[in-house]
Amino acid sequence: MESTDAAMPASAHVGRVGLTVNDLDAAVRFYADVVGLRVQSREDDQATLGADGDPLVVLRADPDAPERGRGEAGLFHTAFRLPTRGALGDALDRVQERWQLSGASDHLVSEALYLSDPAGNGVEIYWDRPREEWPVTDDGRVGMDTLPLDLDDLRAAAAGGDAAPDGTDVGHVHLEVTDLAAAREFYVDRLGFDVRQRFGESALFVAAGEYHHHVGLNTWNGRSEPASAGTRGLDWFELVVPDDEAFEEVRSRLDSGGASLESTDDGLAVSDPDDIGLRLRR
C-alpha cells in the first residue's frame, strides 16, 4: 500500500455532500423515494436528507444555475453505502420501480448500483462485502475490479424495506479531475490519505486506514478545466476527522502547501487543485 508520512487517521470518513439543484422538489423526491433517505429539514431553498439521524445530503436550490461545462472537473458520483446486502436488494427494487438503473457492478470489495439524479448527478448505492473477503494485491493494495452484477440474485436477497436503514452513510465520493498527479499531491501528501488502488494514469482511489476508498479520482472523460462556482452539481463535500491532533496536522499541511483556508462554524473549508470544495470538521 502506497502511503506517505502524512497519515489520515483510520477514523476519518466522508460526511455530508452539498449539491446545487434547479428543482428542489424533484431532487428531494429522488433522494427520499429512490435512494431511501429521510427528509431532516426543509426550507424554501434548501433541504437536508439523511439516515440514522446523520445528515448526508444538503440540497440547495438555484433555479438559474447552469449545467457544469463539458470540460470542467466535478462530481462523478456520490456513493451511498448501505449496511447489508438485503438493503441493497431493497434499493434495487426501488430503483426499478421508480427510476432508471444505468449500471450495476461487482467490484469484489462491494456490489454497486448506478443511476443519475434528476439534475444529472451520478449516484452509486452499494454495500461492502466483509473486509476479510477483500482481495489484497502483492503490493498490499486492495484488489478491485468491475464485473457484471447478478441482479436476479441481488433481488432475491431483498429484505423488504422501503427506506435506507440505520447505518447508511456516504461511503465515498468519486470526482472527475483534470490532473491525477496534482490530485494525488493534494489528497495523499496534504490530506494524508493512502493510495489503495491505481489504474494506470487514469484513476486513483485513496482512503483513510484500510478502507477501499473514501475518494475516487479519475480523468476518464478528459476534463481539462477546473470546476466553476455557481453551476449545477457538486457544491462541496465534507471530510470528518474526529481526532483533534490529526485535524490540526491536516490543517498545518494544507497551510504549508499554500492552500487557501477559510474557517467555518465547525471546521474549515478549502478547495482542491480543481476548485472542488472540501469541508473539514472534527
Rank of each mutant, 00 (worst) to 15 (best):
M1E: 04
E2K: 08
S3Q: 14
M8G: 01
M8C: 06
P9T: 09
A10N: 02
S11E: 14
S11C: 05
V14P: 01
G15T: 13
G18Q: 12
L19I: 13
T20M: 11
T20A: 12
D25Y: 07
A26P: 03
V28N: 12
R29T: 14
A32I: 05
V34E: 09
V35K: 02
G36E: 02
G36M: 02
E43I: 00
Q46I: 06
Q46K: 13
T48A: 12
L49I: 13
L49D: 10
A51V: 08
D54A: 14
L59W: 07
A61C: 07
D62K: 07
D64H: 10
A65Q: 05
A65N: 06
A65F: 08
P66G: 11
E67D: 13
R70T: 06
E72W: 12
E72G: 12
H77K: 08
R81K: 13
L92T: 06
D93R: 13
V95A: 07
E97L: 12
R98K: 15
R98P: 03
L101E: 05
S102R: 10
H107A: 09
E111F: 07
E111N: 11
E111Q: 15
E111R: 10
A112Y: 00
L113Y: 02
L115C: 06
P118L: 12
A119Y: 07
V123M: 01
E124D: 03
E124S: 04
Y126K: 05
P130L: 09
E132N: 14
E133R: 10
P135I: 01
P135V: 00
V136K: 08
R141F: 00
V142H: 06
D145S: 15
T146E: 14
G160E: 00
D162N: 09
P165H: 07
D166I: 07
G167E: 08
D169R: 14
V170G: 03
G171Q: 04
G171L: 03
H172A: 06
H172E: 02
T178P: 03
A181D: 15
F186H: 01
V188Y: 00
R190T: 03
L191M: 12
L191Q: 00
L191K: 00
D194Q: 06
Q197M: 10
F199I: 15
E201R: 14
S202L: 11
F205E: 08
V206Y: 01
E210F: 01
E210N: 11
Y211D: 00
Y211H: 11
H212L: 01
H213A: 04
H214A: 03
V215T: 01
G216Q: 05
N218W: 10
R223H: 14
S224L: 04
P226Y: 15
A229M: 14
G230D: 12
L234V: 10
W236K: 14
F237N: 12
L239Y: 03
V240R: 11
V240D: 10
V241T: 08
P242V: 05
E245R: 13
F247N: 05
E248I: 03
S252W: 03
R253Y: 05
L254E: 02
D255N: 07
S256A: 14
G258D: 01
G258I: 01
A259R: 13
A259Q: 09
G267L: 12
L268S: 08
L268D: 07
A269D: 07
A269T: 03
V270P: 02
D272R: 05
D272N: 08
D275K: 15
I276L: 13
I276P: 02
I276H: 04
G277M: 10
R282W: 05
